[in-house]
C-alpha cells in the first residue's frame, strides 16, 4: 500500500519563526540542525574525531568547530555534536560516527533539542537572569560551553562570539527558556 498517495511528512519546530528580545538583546530560533549525543572513551577520541571531521575537545568547558560541525565537551566521555543542515532526512553524524569503526555510542538527538540564539551587548546579562555561571569573557570565553541551569530547567550553553550565545534546550522546555530569556533581555536593556 506504499503507493497509496501518502505524502512525505513535513516538519514543525517548537520554536519555528520565533524571535524577540530588547534593544540590548536579540533572541531568535536557530535553524534546524543535526545533533548526536556522542559517548567515547579516551582511547577512541581520535578515531571519532577523524570520522566526524572535527577534533573532539578534551578540555572541560570547551568546544571545537570544523566542516560545519561543532563538538561541545559536556563531560569526560560525552560530547554534543551539532551539524548544519538538519533539514535532510537521516542523520549524517550518526553515519559518520558509525564509519569510525571504533567503540562508541551515538544517539540521534536532532529533534530532542532546539536552540535559541541570544546576541547583543546584553546577551550575557539576559542569560544570567537564570544561569548561575560566571559569563564574563575571562571565565566563559568565546567557544566555551557547558551544560548548566537556566531558571528551573537545564540547558547547554555555547558562547559563539563575545556577545552571542547558543542556548540548547529540550524542546518541551523551549517555551520556558524563550520566556525567561525575554524577561532577561528586557531587564538587560534597562
Amino acid at each position: 500500500m506504499v503507493d497509496s498517495g501518502i505524502e512525505m511528512a513535513t516538519r514543525t519546530s517548537s520554536l519555528f519563526g520565533l524571535h524577540g528580545g530588547s534593544s540590548a538583546v536579540r533572541l531568535e530560533a536557530a535553524p534546524a540542525a543535526e545533533r548526536i549525543s556522542l559517548r567515547v572513551h579516551a582511547e577512541n577520541v581520535s578515531a571519532l574525531s577523524g570520522a566526524l571531521g572535527v577534533d573532539l575537545p578534551v578540555k572541560p568547558k570547551t568546544s571545537a568547530s570544523a566542516n560545519g560541525r561543532t563538538a561541545l565537551w559536556l563531560g569526560p566521555d560525552e560530547w554534543l555534536v551539532i551539524g548544519e543542515g538538519g533539514y535532510d532526512i537521516g542523520n549524517s553524524l550518526m553515519q559518520a560516527a558509525a564509519n569510525s569503526g571504533a567503540l562508541h555510542s551515538a544517539t540521534d538527538v536532532s529533534h530532542r533539542n532546539v536552540a535559541i540564539l541570544v546576541s547583543g551587548p546584553g546577551a550575557a546579562a539576559a542569560i544570567n537572569a537564570g544561569c548561575p555561571q560566571d559569563l564574563s569573557l575571562k571565565a566563559f570565553p568565546v567557544g566555551a560551553c557547558s551544560r548548566t541551569i537556566f531558571g528551573k530547567i537545564e540547558i547547554v550553553l555555547l558562547r559563539t562570539a563575545e556577545d552571542a550565545f547558543r542556548v540548547e534546550v529540550w524542546r518541551s522546555f523551549s517555551d520556558y527558556a524563550f520566556g525567561l530569556l525575554a524577561e532577561g533581555a528586557r531587564d538587560a536593556a534597562l
Binding site: P60, K61, G75, P76, P132, Q133, S146, T148, I149
Partner: peptide
C-alpha cells in the same frame, strides 16, 4: 573534579 572548576550548588 571532572569539570575542574567551582560551580554553583544548583548544578549538583
Amino acid at each position: 573534579p571532572y569539570c575542574e572548576e567551582d560551580r554553583s550548588e544548583l548544578e549538583f
